[in-house]
Structures are given as C-alpha cells and as structure tokens.
Design a protein around this nucleic acid. Structure first.
Lengths: 141, 141
DNA sequence: CGTCTTCTTTACGTCAACGTCATGTTGTAT
DNA sequence: ATACAACATGACGTTGACGTAAAGAAGACG
C-alpha cells in the first residue's frame, strides 16, 4: 500500500479517467472514438489503457474537429500520421487524401483571413456608430 | 410575349430557383434558413422573393458554415452586419458577441497555421519513404 | 463476506441541419 | 377546362456525434 495508485509513468499508459481529465472529453467520447477506429487503447480484459500513440492521435482528432473536419476525414488523415508497414500503393493513396485536405485547409485559411478582415471592419463601423452618439439613422446597409 | 420571363433586374429580386442556382443550395435550405430567421425574403402571397440583402446574408452564412460555425452563431454575427435602428445597449451586446467570434477566428487561424505546417511536414516524410523505395520499417512513430 | 466504486456493454435519446415524401396552391400554356 | 410546372406547407426521416439511463462485472476496502 505504497504507491499502488500512482499512474505508473514507466508503462506510459493512462486510464480512461486520466484521459478525460487531460483532454476535457467524456468517457463516452473515448469509447466512441475507439468504436470508430480512431483510437486503439490496449484492452486488459474489459478495461482500456491509452498509450502515448492514442494521446497523440486524440490531440490530432480534437484539432481536426475544430477545423470542421468530420471524424471520417480525420480518420483518413490519422492514417497518414501513423503509417506503419503499409503497401506503397496504400501509402500514396493516403497521400492523395492528405493533399486534398491540405488544399481544403489552405483555402480555409485564405477565407478566414478575409472573414477576419471583414468582421474587424464591420466592428469598426459599429464602434463608430456607438462612439458618435449621433445615432445617425441606418448608417450601414 | 417579348421578354416576359427575364428576371426583371430592376426590381433586384430573385426567385428561389435563381437563388439555388446562384449559390448551389436547395430550396429546402433556403426555406430552412428563413424559418431560422437567417433570411427574410419578401413574401408575395406564398412565393418568396430574395433581395440583395438576402444574397449578401446568404453569402456570409455559407462562409460562416465553412468555418464550422453553427447557424445560431452565424445568426448572431449577421445581426452585426445588418444593424438598423437598434438600441445602443443592443448594439454593444452584439459587439461583444462579435469580439468573441473574432477571438475564435483568430485562434482558429493560428491553429490552422500549425496544422498546415505539421501536415506538410508529415507529407514530406511519407513522400521520402515512397521515393526511397527502401521501405525502412516504421520510419515514423 | 458484503458493499462501494469504477469501469464495462447495450441500447435508446438528442440536437443540428437539412433530405424526402405527400399533398396543396397558383399562374401560365394549350 | 385542364394540364403542368413551379412554388408552397407540413411532417417525418436521416446522419453525425455524441448523451444518458439501465444493468452487469471486477477489484478495493472494512
């Protein structure tokens, strides 16, 4: 009864609770991702143990989600990052997918720049309306 | 029977079909957006006529969607762009929302930069693996 | 040993954002 | 008058990404 419940850093695995705390997700989410083959925790009987690999993947998953990618698109991208001893044909197919995603992301960034610029400009207008109390009827069309 | 069916550019309104063709959306989508108070087409009896304002809004809606914003978030942003004769309190509340969105978008852009960089790097690795046919087992962890 | 947690599985529920009928109305052409 | 095409209104279905409730197993503790 010494340090029985210390997360055992040597094995470098985490329980589902540790993961939830670390990444601000629910257990349900992690099981869901496993079911969708986005994560592959070690199964000790019923329990799951999440490895360093799972944590890296989860990080990418959450990032992908913030960009509006679907879980399926993300899954395809993960294949690129965790490429094992695959066939060359499979690899280059994955690379094609990655190129598509990259194009998406670059277009998205360009659009985002425009949107940010526009939003700032519009906010400037509204701020001006507020500062000059004049309240000139219908300044913006 | 001369040019009876010319879209009447002077009135500057478009039918639902025109809109669908112009923006690559379905009628259902436009009706849905109206129901959610994102668009406000003129109602002539049953029919809808979409104005220049509706088109500008739809453009912003579709852009917002590409950034992963929900329709509700987009609706709040649209309020900023089409600000009429509102109360000052309401205006500054809208401005607060806009600031939050702006923060989101800037964070999103920063993350996007990192993701693009990472993805490019990873693609480079895989390309190298493919070019040097060596197929060195498990190059990337 | 029984109890308490924490994990598990199974399965149904939910919410957003539309799609997909079924059915009805309206203006125009023959 | 009738057909028809384009519009309309419900209302129910679908998909993705989980939430949630029910019921059971497995180990720790007193």
């Amino acid at each position: 009864m010494f340090d029985m419940d210390v997360p055992d850093m040597t094995a470098d695995v985490m329980t589902i609770r540790d993961m939830c705390a670390a990444f601000e997700v629910t257990p349900r989410t992690l099981r869901f991702y496993e079911q969708k083959e986005l994560l592959f925790p070690i199964r000790i009987g019923q329990k799951r143990l999440f490895t360093r690999r799972d944590r890296a993947r989860l990080k990418l998953i959450l990032r992908g989600k913030r960009f509006g990618f679907s879980l399926e698109e993300i899954r395809q991208l993960l294949d690129l990052y965790y490429v094992g001893d695959q066939q060359a044909t499979q690899l280059s197919r994955t690379l094609d997918i990655a190129r598509d995603r990259l194009t998406d992301m670059e277009r998205q960034r360009a659009e985002l720049d425009v949107a940010i610029y526009d939003l700032k400009a519009q906010m400037g207008l509204v701020e001006d309306m507020l500062s000059s109390r004049a309240n000139a009827h219908n300044a913006a069309e």
